[in-house]
Simulated assay, not measured.
Amino acid sequence: MEDPAKIPIPPLPRPPGRDRPNPAAPTTNNRRRVSFSEFPPIPKTPIKRQRRPCCSTCKCCMWTFFFFFSLLLFFTLIGSLLYAWARPMLPEFRVERLSVPKFELVTNSHQTYLKTEVHLFFEASNKNDKIGFSYDDIRVFVSSEDVNLGRESVPAFAQGPNNVTIVKIRSGVSNSLVDNGEGKRLKKKFEKKDLVLDVELRAAVRIFVGKWISNRFPITLLCEDIHLSKVAAGFEPVCHVSLMGIIFN
């Protein structure tokens, strides 16, 4: 009897389906290596840039320029026709008479005070045939060598076309503090009848033509270097008209 340990053991059979090839499992020969160079290039989509409508912009600028040019031409034509019809002229102010009946210096406690009285007569002329002037809030400033000799207000008045109006002004100062040297120098000139005055009139004026009347605008009348002796001899100095900072003779 043989020894059971020496009897050979046969191998176990393979499980069913083990010997069949798996079609889903790729073999070494069926594998394929793909390089990036084999993919087709992606087409680039061109970027469309929006072009500005040059033609429409140029047309808009041209029509705008044409509109403003036509408007300017229209107002220039209207202004020329009005100027030819009205022939406007600035008002004229001249000093008809001037007198200083009082010029006194009072010294008190090492201070000098000035007392003056000034009489002025202006001739206001409007030489326009169709334009009138209306003056409001007239203020008068009288000085000599920058020393105040008086301030006064004048009542409002109106001037129609081709009108002459005499404006009377009485001004002066009372106990006005002044430098002692300046006061004495002006006093000597007054006694010698060599005093020189500067008169400034500031007013608000309106222009009217028929029933039409404009808004108020400022006007300044400058009457400079008025010599008492010359006015006493019959000379009538003309004042300069200042409009918007422009001085007209």
Rank of each mutant, 00 (worst) to 15 (best):
M1S: 03
M1G: 02
E2M: 07
K6Q: 10
I9N: 06
P10M: 01
P11T: 00
P15W: 00
P16T: 04
G17W: 00
P21L: 08
T28W: 06
N29K: 09
R31H: 08
R31M: 15
V34Q: 06
E38G: 02
P41Q: 14
P41A: 14
I42T: 08
K44T: 05
P46F: 10
P46Y: 11
I47V: 14
R49L: 12
R51P: 01
R52W: 14
P53V: 04
P53N: 15
C54K: 13
C54T: 13
C54V: 14
C54Q: 12
S56L: 09
C58F: 13
C60P: 00
C61A: 09
T64L: 14
T64E: 10
F66L: 12
F66I: 10
F69Q: 06
L72Y: 08
F74P: 01
F75V: 11
L77W: 04
L77R: 02
Y83N: 09
A84N: 03
A86F: 12
P88L: 04
L90V: 01
L90I: 04
P91G: 00
V95L: 07
E96V: 06
E96C: 03
E96Y: 13
R97M: 05
P101F: 07
P101V: 09
V106P: 01
N108E: 15
S109E: 13
Q111S: 12
T112I: 09
L114Y: 03
K115C: 12
K115R: 13
E117G: 08
V118D: 11
H119N: 14
A124Y: 01
S125N: 14
S125A: 14
K130A: 15
K130D: 13
I131D: 05
D137L: 09
D137Y: 11
R139H: 15
R139W: 15
F141Q: 08
F141C: 03
E145A: 11
E145K: 09
D146W: 13
D146K: 15
N148R: 11
P155L: 12
P155T: 12
A158F: 06
G160C: 08
P161T: 10
N163M: 11
V164D: 09
I166F: 10
V167E: 05
V167K: 06
R170H: 15
S174K: 15
L177P: 05
G181P: 06
E182Y: 01
G183K: 00
E191N: 08
E191W: 05
K192T: 10
V196E: 05
E200A: 13
L201D: 00
L201C: 01
A203R: 04
I207K: 00
V209W: 02
K211F: 03
K211V: 01
K211T: 03
N215F: 09
T220G: 02
L221V: 05
L221Y: 04
L221C: 03
L221R: 00
D225Y: 07
S229F: 06
A233T: 08
F235N: 10
S242K: 05
S242H: 01
M244W: 10
M244I: 05
G245P: 01
